[in-house]
Design a protein around this nucleic acid. Structure first.
Lengths: 142, 142
DNA sequence: GTTGAACCTCAACCTAGGTTCAGGTCAAGC
DNA sequence: GCTTGACCTGAACCTAGGTTGAGGTTCAAC
C-alpha cells in the first residue's frame, strides 16, 4: 500500500471529482475512512483510482448503493467479475427499458414538431391509443 | 362549458391519477382553481381530459413547468401547435442525448456481463479511454 | 342524529446525490 | 504574530414530483 500523502484537494483534482463528493462518498461507505494528520485527511494514491472506478460505475448506470456493494465485495477478496456480472445482469433490463421509453419519447416529439393542430384536446398526439404514445405508458403491470 | 359536477375522487379515477396529484397540479397552476361546494372541489368533465393531456405530455418527457407553459399558452388562445412545436424542438435534443447515453450504458453493461476480471483496478472496463466508456462521459462542454 | 367515507388545509416528508453554510482549525509565508 | 488558503464538522439546503400525516369538515346513508 502506497503512503497516505495526498490532501483532499489534490485527490479531488486528480480524480476529477469535487471535494464535497469525496467526503460524501466516505460517509456513504464507498471510501474507507482515511488516515488523518492533525485532523486533516491524508489519502494514498490508490484513492484516486478508486474514485475513477466509482465514476465509471456511476456513468454505467449504477446507483451509489450498487457501487458500494461492488466495492465492498471486492474489498473482501471476491473476484471482481462475480459481483460485477450480477449487478450488470440486473441493471441491463432497466437500461433497455429506459432506451425503449426514450425512443418512444423521441418518436412522439418528432411527430409533435410537425403538429399543426389548433387545440390540444383534438390533437391526435394527446389522444391515447394513438400509436406513438402506446410505447410511452409506464409499466404498471408489476 | 359543461357543468362542474365531479368530485375529486371521481376525476382521479377517470383520469387515472391520484387525488394528491390533482391537488398538487392545481397548486402548480396546471389546473385552474375549480368551483367549490361547501368547501369541496367540483370539476367539469373537461378536467379529466386536461389531466390526460398532462399525463401524455409528462410521458413525452416534459417537466410540469413545460406542461404549464403549454397549457397556459393554449388557454390564452394561441394555436396548440405554436408552443407545442417550440417545446418539442427544444426537448428533442435532450432526449436524443439521453438515448445516446443509455445506449452507451447498455453496451458497457453487456460487456460487463462477460467480464472475467479478478480486480476492478485492472479491469479494462474501468480504465478510461477504453472504447465502451468514451460515450458515457457526461457533457461538460456547455 | 349518528356513523363512516370522502373531502378539506397546511406542513412535513420522501428519494438521490450531492452542495452550501456557519463557525472553527491548521499550515505556510512574510 | 498575522494573514491567507486549505481544511474540518454538522446541519441545512437543493431539485422534481409528488405523498403522507394531523387535525378538522361535509356528505350520504341508515
Amino acid at each position: 500500500m502506497a503512503k497516505a500523502e495526498l490532501r483532499i484537494g489534490e485527490v479531488a483534482e486528480r480524480a476529477g471529482v469535487s471535494i464535497s463528493a469525496i467526503r460524501f462518498y466516505e460517509r456513504q461507505g464507498l471510501l474507507p475512512r482515511p488516515e488523518r494528520a492533525g485532523g486533516q485527511r491524508r489519502f494514498s494514491p490508490e484513492t484516486v483510482q478508486r474514485l475513477r472506478i466509482i465514476d465509471v460505475a456511476k456513468q454505467a448506470g449504477f446507483s451509489l448503493e450498487e457501487v458500494r456493494t461492488l466495492l465492498t465485495s471486492t474489498d473482501e477478496g471476491a473476484p471482481a467479475h462475480q459481483e460485477l456480472q450480477a449487478l450488470a445482469s440486473r441493471k441491463l433490463p432497466e437500461i433497455e427499458a429506459l432506451i425503449a421509453r426514450a425512443e418512444s419519447m423521441r418518436d412522439w416529439l418528432t411527430a409533435a414538431t410537425g403538429c399543426g393542430c389548433e387545440s390540444l384536446e383534438t390533437c391526435g398526439l394527446f389522444i391515447e391509443a394513438t400509436e406513438p404514445l402506446s410505447g410511452l405508458a409506464e409499466d404498471r403491470s408489476g
